[in-house]
């Protein structure tokens, strides 16, 4: 089984958020429930100010903090599924402990007051135990892996679009959206990325393009000191999360 990894080249990323909306529509998330978010940072002052951005999916850590803290073992890492970290919505009790433990802030609890009113959950009320019924809901549902629309009261997160990735032909080193045979198996954020700043492939295969990119461009993992060992790697300048600065 492959160990799926994502590479994001920040020298090519334009901060457009197409990854965010593609993910949102593919996975039927609510406004603000950005499984794949782009964070913007500003530093410095005119005429030498900076603006930077960091696209941020779940890092699918090899040693994920969220799994360690989950009291019901609802969240788990599945080595038989590319090493993706899933949430079993039948086990999740919505305690949000994982959200606090995650060093990357990539877990979401959407069963609360909406970011944007009126609440989509009220406009498109849920049926069959779903939190809401998105008007163009995707057909894939897998509560054991946190795929599809969640029930009430649970945490949700990026699944590397496992419902797509899992159907890829066995043994492919990379899932490249430019390959017509593979495009339908590529995670939504990678598939749509206009400047092609994202790459997806097998980290266990030394021949994969993702491993070559990491090798050639000295890829780095965010917050490596935590020991989480993300399966998401960043290339290029600016790969880091600036320290939090409270507003004066």
């Amino acid at each position: 089984m492959a160990k799926w990894g994502m590479v994001i080249d920040l020298d090519k990323c334009t901060g457009c958020q197409a990854c965010t909306t593609a993910c949102g529509m593919e996975n039927d998330t609510l406004p603000g429930e950005n499984w794949q978010d782009v964070l913007f940072y500003t530093e410095g002052e005119y005429p030498s100010g900076q603006m930077k951005w960091l696209p941020r999916p779940c890092m699918q850590c090899e040693d994920p903090s969220c799994v360690h803290v989950c009291p019901t073992r609802a969240t788990y890492k599945d080595p038989d599924a590319g090493g993706i970290v899933f949430i079993d919505w039948d086990k999740c009790i919505g305690c949000k402990y994982c959200m606090i433990a995650c060093p990357y802030g990539v877990r979401f609890f959407a069963d609360e007051a909406p970011l944007v009113e009126p609440d989509l959950k009220e406009i498109f009320p849920g049926s069959g135990g779903q939190l809401w019924d998105p008007p163009g809901q995707s057909p894939d549902q897998d509560r054991k892996r946190g795929i599809g629309v969640q029930p009430k009261g649970v945490v949700s997160k990026c699944t590397f679009c496992y419902h797509r990735v899992s159907k890829a032909p066995e043994g492919v080193p990379d899932l490249d959206e430019d390959d017509p045979e593979l495009v339908d198996y590529v995670p939504a954020c990678v598939r749509t990325c206009p400047p092609k700043a994202r790459f997806f492939g097998d980290l266990d295969n030394p021949e994969s393009n993702v491993n070559k990119l990491i090798a050639n461009k000295n890829g780095i993992r965010l917050k490596d000191h935590t020991g989480n060992r993300p399966q998401v790697c960043y290339l290029g300048a600016g790969a880091g999360i600036p320290a939090f600065q409270p507003k004066s």
Binding site: Q17, A18, T20, P135, G136, V183, T192, C193, P194
Partner: peptide
Amino acid sequence: RVTSIYGDPGNPIANGKLCPKGHLGTYFL
């Protein structure tokens, strides 16, 4: 029901890609 929208790989402008707006077409419908 429209469930998702992606860029058309056969279209020379889109080349399979979309900007952030394009995916939201479902909500326009």
